[in-house]
Simulated assay, not measured.
Amino acid sequence: MIIKNPTKKLGKTLALVTAMSAATFASVAQADWKGWNIHNTGYPVTVAMDSFIKDAEKVTDGRVSGRVYNGAVLGSQSDAIQMLQVGGIQFAGFNLGPMGDAVPEVNVVSLPFIFKSLDHMHRVMDGPVGDQLSDAMAKKGIISLAWYDGGARSFYNTSKPIKTPADMKGEKFRVMNNELYVGMVEALGGNATPMAYSEVYQSLKTGVVDGAENNWPSYDSSNHFEVAPYYSLTEHLILPECLCVSVKAWNGLSSSDQVAVKKAARDSSTLQRKLWAERDTESRKKVLASGVKFNEIKDKSAFQNAMKPVYAKAVKDNPSLKTFIDQIQNTQ
């Protein structure tokens, strides 16, 4: 067979090869990842996320790099979840509480008193339950590479200590945007008010809400202790956080880079948990020294028993939670 215009044919072939090579190079070239974070500079999650992206750049020889945008400057957590799902951002540090709207299975960790302690939460999330929850998230466009410590959350308010559920009757408490938290406060006799975190300080100061709930470091860093000086150690929620990546960004990595990036994430989790434990102790000392009126609730059975209808409704709305509940409660 005689090829007509061989020079022209060769030129087209070379152009095609060049285009394919460029596409291949682009797929392995540096990926500039944007990371969402609600916390400010110096917070344990912030330090750990910075460590993660720096390590990821190092272990991938620069094929993955980027920066963390702190203080929710890229939007609220709800915004960030949606951006992560479509690949608008590539990684984020999320509290799993609001994640339940996007991934219903994750609501299991938002059930009050589901975890016996912080150590129990770590064992659960580092085991099969954590893997299963990450798989459920992946179906919605998000992968958890590592689990961070979000501490134990307790109630605080402006006027009095909370010793029994009766002390919450008629009180307005800010909660994160999740129906489970609304049900939790209402089951304890209070009035739940979902509200953005950034609005809580002023709302406590002006009486829009009477109280809120959070861990020691957040109670400290938000300065909520200045306007709500009664902290009652209910520890009703022990919420893990995730270092998450977009499925779209993840699938753009080679298998070897995925292994390397996941190790960087796990290393950052070890760092975050260490820094969290230190910060938790420091924040507790700081706010108590400021004059915060603290009370510990040694017998939490009245609070725990009040959660039975919350669990029943959660399982009715999402029967798949029953298996997760059993797994968590059976984890030693």
Rank of each mutant, 00 (worst) to 15 (best):
K160W: 02
G127S: 14
V124D: 02
G87I: 10
D167N: 15
K116V: 00
G93C: 09
D149K: 02
Y148T: 02
G97Y: 10
A136S: 14
I143A: 12
V200G: 04
G88A: 11
S198V: 13
T158E: 11
V86Q: 12
K139S: 14
G183H: 07
V109M: 11
A138C: 04
D126G: 08
Q90A: 08
P161W: 04
T206V: 13
Y181L: 15
E105F: 06
L145Q: 08
A80E: 00
D167T: 12
S134Q: 02
G97L: 14
F155S: 01
G150H: 03
P194W: 03
N178Y: 05
M121L: 12
P112L: 04
A192K: 05
Y148R: 01
Q82S: 14
S110W: 00
D149Y: 04
V129N: 09
A196L: 11
A152N: 01
L133C: 02
A138K: 10
V103C: 06
H120P: 06
M121Q: 15
L96W: 11
K116H: 11
N191K: 15
G190L: 02
K169C: 01
S134A: 14
V175D: 09
F155H: 07
S78H: 13
Q77W: 00
I81R: 04
V175A: 08
I143D: 03
V124M: 03
V108F: 07
R174M: 10
G150K: 03
A146R: 09
K172W: 00
L180I: 15
E199H: 10
T164N: 13
G88T: 08
P112E: 05
E199D: 14
L188N: 03
G141V: 07
I162D: 13
N191F: 04
A80D: 01
M168D: 10
M176V: 11
G87C: 08
V109F: 09
D210M: 02
A152K: 02
A196H: 12
L84T: 09
K169W: 01
T164D: 11
M195E: 03
D126I: 06
L133N: 01
Q90T: 04
F94W: 11
A187H: 01
Y201P: 02
P161F: 03
L96V: 07
I81Q: 12
D135Q: 13
F115G: 02
A196G: 13
D79L: 00
L96E: 08
F113A: 07
N178K: 05
D131I: 09
P161R: 12
T206L: 13
Y197V: 10
V185G: 01
A166T: 13
I162S: 15
V182G: 05
N157I: 01
F94A: 06
F155I: 02
R123D: 14
